[in-house]
Simulated assay, not measured.
Amino acid sequence: MEISELKTLISLVETGSVTATARELNRVPSAITSRIQQLEDHLGIPLFYREKKRLIVTSKALELYEYACQIVKLVNTAELNIKTNCPGGKFRIGALESIAATRLPLPLTKLYEGVPNIELELITGIRDTLYNALINGQHDAILIGDAPFDEKLERVTAFEEELIIIASKNHTEIKKPHDIKSSNILVFREGCSYRDRLLNWYHSFNSYPKRVTEVTSYHAILGSVAAGMGIGIVPKIMFDQFSNKHLLSKHAIEGPLGQIKIELIWKKGWLSANIIALQSILAYQKYPKIE
Rank of each mutant, 00 (worst) to 15 (best):
E2T: 14
K7A: 10
T8D: 03
L12H: 09
V13I: 15
V13K: 03
S17G: 07
A20Q: 15
E24Q: 15
L25R: 13
N26V: 08
V28C: 12
R35W: 02
D41A: 15
P46A: 15
E51W: 11
K52Y: 14
R54H: 13
T58L: 10
S59P: 03
E66W: 08
Q70K: 14
I71R: 13
I82A: 12
N85A: 12
P87E: 02
G89F: 04
G94K: 03
I99F: 07
I99Y: 01
I99D: 04
A100Q: 11
R103A: 13
V115N: 03
L122G: 09
G125K: 00
I126W: 01
R127V: 10
R127P: 10
T129Q: 01
L130N: 02
N132Q: 14
A133P: 05
L134W: 06
G137L: 08
D140S: 10
A141I: 11
I142Y: 01
I142R: 01
L143V: 08
D146Q: 11
D146F: 01
A147P: 06
P148C: 02
F149W: 08
T157I: 11
E161R: 14
I164P: 02
S168K: 15
H171M: 10
K175I: 09
K175R: 13
K176I: 09
V187I: 14
E190C: 04
G191I: 03
Y194S: 09
R195M: 07
R197M: 09
N200Q: 13
Y202H: 11
Y202V: 01
P209L: 04
A220I: 06
G228R: 03
G228I: 02
I233D: 02
I237W: 10
M238H: 04
K250F: 03
G255S: 04
P256V: 12
L257I: 06
I260V: 12
E263A: 10
L264E: 05
I265D: 05
A273F: 02
I276G: 00
S280G: 01
L282G: 04
